[in-house]
C-alpha cells in the first residue's frame, strides 16, 4: 500500500486508554482521492483509529498515543503542529448527526466563518456549493433560515457532511455515517461518497459489509486493536488472505 500515492500514512501507531491497549502497531497508508473502508467487530478500534487521524482523541482524558501519523509527509503529532490546522485539512463526519442548534445556513457557514470569511456573498456561495455537493440543496434552499433540528435524520447527516465540505478539507473521515439512517437516506449518502472521491480522500468506518464492498476502493479489517488485513476491496472481499477476515465477512464469526 505504501507505494501508492498515500495522503496519510500511519506508522507503528499504538494507543492506550489508561491501561487498555486499544490500537496495536497499526501500519497503513490511505490513498489520495480514493475511498477506504474500515470494517471489524464492535469495539475493535475502528473509531479510535479514525479519531487518531485528525487528533480528535486529544479530547479524551488519559489517552496515550505512540507512533506516527503523517499527513502529506508531516507528522501531525509533532509538537510544532497546529492541531486546528490539521482538523481544517482533515474533516470528520460523526456517527450520529450533530448539527449545532443554529439555522441550516449558519451550520454550513460556521466553518468558513471561524476560518475568517466575513463577506456575506462569499459565504452565500460557499453555503450553496456545499449544500449542492452534499445533495441537500434542493431540499432546503427555501428554508435556509430554519433551525437545523427541523430536518430529518438523513437530512441532518447530509447537512453535517455539507458543513464539513464547506471547510474544503483534503480528507473526509466518516464514522458510520449511515448507522442512524434508513435505506433511502443511506443510498443517497453512498452516492454522495462516490461523488466526493473525485475531489476528496474519504475514509469511512462501517458495519455494513455491502456498503464497504459497494462504496470503497480499499478495505481494512480490524480485530481487537490490530489491523488484520488491508487491501483492494475486491481482493479483501473475494479472496481474503486471513482466515479471520474471511470468517468475519461471511458472517461466521464468534
Amino acid at each position: 500500500m505504501k507505494e501508492h500515492d498515500a495522503i496519510i500514512t500511519v506508522n507503528h501507531l499504538n494507543l492506550h486508554y489508561g491501561e487498555h491497549h486499544a490500537l496495536k502497531e497499526i501500519e497503513v497508508g490511505f490513498a489520495r482521492h480514493k475511498v477506504t473502508a474500515l470494517i471489524g467487530p464492535s469495539g475493535c478500534g475502528k473509531s479510535t483509529l479514525l479519531r487518531c487521524l485528525n487528533r480528535m482523541n486529544d479530547l479524551v482524558e488519559n489517552v496515550r498515543i505512540e507512533g506516527e501519523v503523517r499527513f502529506e509527509g508531516t507528522d501531525i503529532y509533532a509538537p510544532e503542529v497546529d492541531v486546528v490546522e490539521i482538523r481544517k485539512q482533515i474533516g470528520m463526519v460523526f456517527q450520529r448527526p450533530n448539527p449545532f442548534p443554529k439555522s441550516i445556513y449558519e451550520n454550513v457557514a460556521y466553518g468558513p466563518r471561524v476560518h475568517g470569511v466575513r463577506d456575506r456573498s462569499t459565504l452565500d456561495a460557499v453555503v450553496e456549493k456545499s449544500l449542492r455537493d452534499a445533495a441537500l440543496w434542493d431540499e432546503v434552499k427555501d428554508r435556509l433560515d430554519a433551525p437545523a433540528f427541523s430536518l430529518s435524520g438523513g437530512q441532518q447527516q447530509r447537512l453535517c457532511i455539507a458543513r464539513t465540505l464547506a471547510v474544503e478539507p483534503e480528507v473526509v473521515l466518516m464514522d458510520e455515517p449511515c448507522s442512524a439512517l434508513d435505506p433511502i437516506a443511506t443510498a443517497k449518502i453512498e452516492a454522495l461518497i462516490e461523488e466526493l472521491k473525485t475531489r476528496y480522500t474519504v475514509i469511512i468506518v462501517t458495519h455494513n459489509m455491502q456498503q464497504a464492498a459497494r462504496a470503497s476502493d480499499y478495505t481494512g479489517f480490524m480485530y481487537l486493536g490490530e489491523l488484520v488485513e488491508f487491501g483492494d476491496t475486491p481482493q479483501v472481499f473475494e479472496a481474503p488472505r486471513e482466515e479471520l477476515t474471511e470468517r468475519y465477512i461471511t458472517g461466521r464469526f464468534g
Binding site: V84, R87, G91, F94, F100, P101
Partner: peptide
C-alpha cells in the same frame, strides 16, 4: 457532540466556546 463537531471543522477551542457552547 457540539464540541466535537466544531473542533472537527478546525475551529479553535475559543471559537468553539464562544460560538457554539456558550450560545
Amino acid at each position: 457532540s457540539y464540541r466535537e463537531g466544531s473542533l472537527a471543522l478546525g475551529a479553535t477551542r475559543w471559537q468553539t466556546i464562544s460560538r457554539v457552547l456558550v450560545p
